[in-house]
Design a binder for these strands. Structure first.
Lengths: 370, 370
DNA sequence: GCCTACTGTGAATGCGCTTTCAATCCGGTT
DNA sequence: AACCGGATTGAAAGCGCATTCACAGTAGGC
């Protein structure tokens, strides 16, 4: 590893010019076979590997696409987490993992590599500079990068925003891909109401800061309205995090509340819900635990639904009825869009895709096997 | 996006030289505050983002680490898989996902970004060139990159090999991190023998091509030898793939065989095993299905164990006793090692780490909750 | 009021490769 | 034997930034 060989070394050793060496790698057919062999042999002997940087600099393109996503987990809990191997942590990760996987695959198909970087909350623009400067284009999970930075960067290279609604008008020139949260929740709710004849529904949402959760709640509202059920202004319960633990807690809270109310004489055994609708799978799984613990049977006593379609959702018993999010596809679409932006459609109207979701009817609502 | 601004543009606009612009980004404190502000303002107005390529070229380092791992899934099954969302596929991915996650985190801690690239089987050196040229160092999952290429590349930048034993002598100058497969399986087997008093064990391994599976089998052999049990030369059964489906099939085969043998009068109810030991969790989970189907109770009638500690392993019922592989840690260690190689310990004896594993005693062997 | 010691900044060079543009080579022609 | 068109190859000019090295200011010290 004394001094890394360059085109010059290879050129000298094989008795050609550096231009020819370059051509051997870039466009092999334009070099006579005998020459090519000679160059490749020299390269092999020298241990030559073309410098991506020099290549990129000279050709003004890196062949790399990027992805910025939120940090996996709290740095604080890191040491404990390593041992504890927390469930929530695991499930959370799948979210971005799926996107990574989708992007990686699509990127490879187009001959790109994938650069990934999680943004730590505090870290300012180091992330941005690091990634933005080394890629031909990249995708950002909503709320990962400060709007201001995005604004600057998007002037230099294509950026596509993933999930979450357009944040504000400043960024509406960016391409954007989201998932049909509202549609999915509406359809799922409709299913519960019409196909299962359930009426007393409760919706457990996340914080207002989660655009996904909010969109889902809107879908819920729409379904209620369409069915002529009372439409509430707010979720029956909000949680700060959308974790299993919170879902469990929320369930306890709801059932306790219902118990008290029916205890003091509600209207006809009253307020115990027939269906508990959670804004994501994590919470729904937590709810299943809580219900199991309290001896409430699912779906016989109460139906439970989630949202996301994480793998865990169909491993639990009863398998969770949910809305499957095409996260992998989201990643793939992001790449397709970027590639298009890097090709013919350099400019052109900003695109805004909404990926369709599908309702997975499983046991926890009374459908499916078991 | 007409023409992307460069240092020159920023320099001109802010009335300084390009050297000063560069300093503002590289070493802000060396520039007077008023000047710095002026430069940053100009940069913002212009939408300037430093070119990672130019930076890397000039400073001979990229600030990026790489990871090469095997392709996620068959390209053939891609379209079906998207819909089918195959379980095996999912679980397999977790393997590399965990490593990615570990590397990403550690890399970020050290100020590096992570470049990932799955290697397609056919693709020749494109992968190598693509990644190797753009990173300061990288990790390779065993058998992902042709030995020959690795040899060339490792002369240019640090490479650490993950999992799998050293392949052969040619590569023994590479750093190498593996997981204590044999130790783990030995300890797990010892547990079954000594703590549960089980004697009639069967081991289901994978193909000989899997070094991990082979190492695990060795651990099994050692435990048998230590306990004075008969030591077999080969696993009781080998499967081609190590999937759930195969595990299920293998289980059927074993039980059918045992049934026949005891049917024709084996010695005392004889050859039905007391414990079925699988070389990985996937197969063990498949086995649980098969056993459930056949009405064989676990762990009462037979104990079952896996290896890997995939999340699924503790979601199944009964929860699977297994050996937990620290994949995330593996990723982190890889980065630590690379960083060290890029720092003080540029050269020095090749390191070979073996990460300790821990046995997770759960219900499927008769331990644990439930 | 001249000299030393810094602090900030600019000029210039090169990192390793791609990419015209032009020169050279080749076999076949006239 | 001079000539021609395409196939190969070379020469040279950057790509955008980091980094000496040297040079202006500016203080502080005598």
């Amino acid at each position: 590893m004394s001094t890394t060989p360059t085109v010059y070394d290879v050129a000298e050793r094989s008795g050609v010019s550096i231009a020819t060496v370059s051509r051997v790698y870039r466009n092999p057919d334009s070099v006579r076979e005998t020459t090519r062999e000679r160059v490749l042999a020299a390269a092999r002997e020298l241990g030559y590997v073309p410098s991506g940087n020099a290549r990129g600099l000279a050709s003004r393109s890196t062949g790399v696409l990027g992805l910025c996503f939120p940090d996996y987990s709290d740095p604080d809990t890191e040491t404990e987490a390593a041992a504890a191997d927390a469930d929530d942590d695991h499930a959370f990760m799948l979210y971005s993992d799926q996107i990574i996987r989708g992007m990686e695959r699509a990127a490879r198909r187009h001959g790109y590599a994938l650069l990934i970087a999680a943004s730590l909350k505090g870290g300012p623009e180091s992330l941005v500079a690091k990634v933005a400067g080394r890629v031909d284009g990249f995708a950002v999970l909503a709320r990962t990068v400060p709007t201001e930075d995005l604004d600057v960067i998007s002037r230099r290279l294509p950026v596509v925003m993933l999930a979450g609604p357009r944040e504000n008008d400043e960024l509406d020139h960016l391409d954007h891909i989201e998932v049909a949260n509202a549609d999915g929740q509406r359809e799922l709710t409709r299913h519960l109401i019409e196909d299962h004849g359930l009426r007393r529904l409760v919706f457990v949402g996340g914080s207002k800061a989660s655009p996904d959760a909010e969109a889902r709640f809107r879908g819920f509202q729409e379904a209620c309205r369409a069915a002529g059920l009372p439409v509430r202004e707010e979720p029956d319960l909000r949680t700060e995090m959308m974790t299993q633990a919170e879902g469990e807690r929320a369930t306890d809270a709801l059932l306790d509340r219902a118990g008290e109310e029916s205890g003091d004489g509600g209207p006809g055994g009253g307020t115990v819900p027939e269906a508990m609708i959670f804004a994501n799978d994590q919470m729904a799984v937590g709810a299943l635990h809580a219900l199991d613990r309290r001896g409430v049977r699912v779906p016989d006593d109460v139906a439970v639904t989630g949202f996301d379609g994480i793998p865990l959702s169909r491993l639990v018993r009863p398998a969770l009825t949910t809305v499957r999010q095409p996260m992998r596809q989201l990643g793939e679409e992001a790449v397709e869009l970027l590639v298009r932006r890097l090709g013919e459609e350099r400019d052109g109207e900003p695109v805004s895709l909404m990926l369709p979701v599908t309702v997975a009817r499983r046991a926890s609502c009374g459908c499916g096997e078991r």
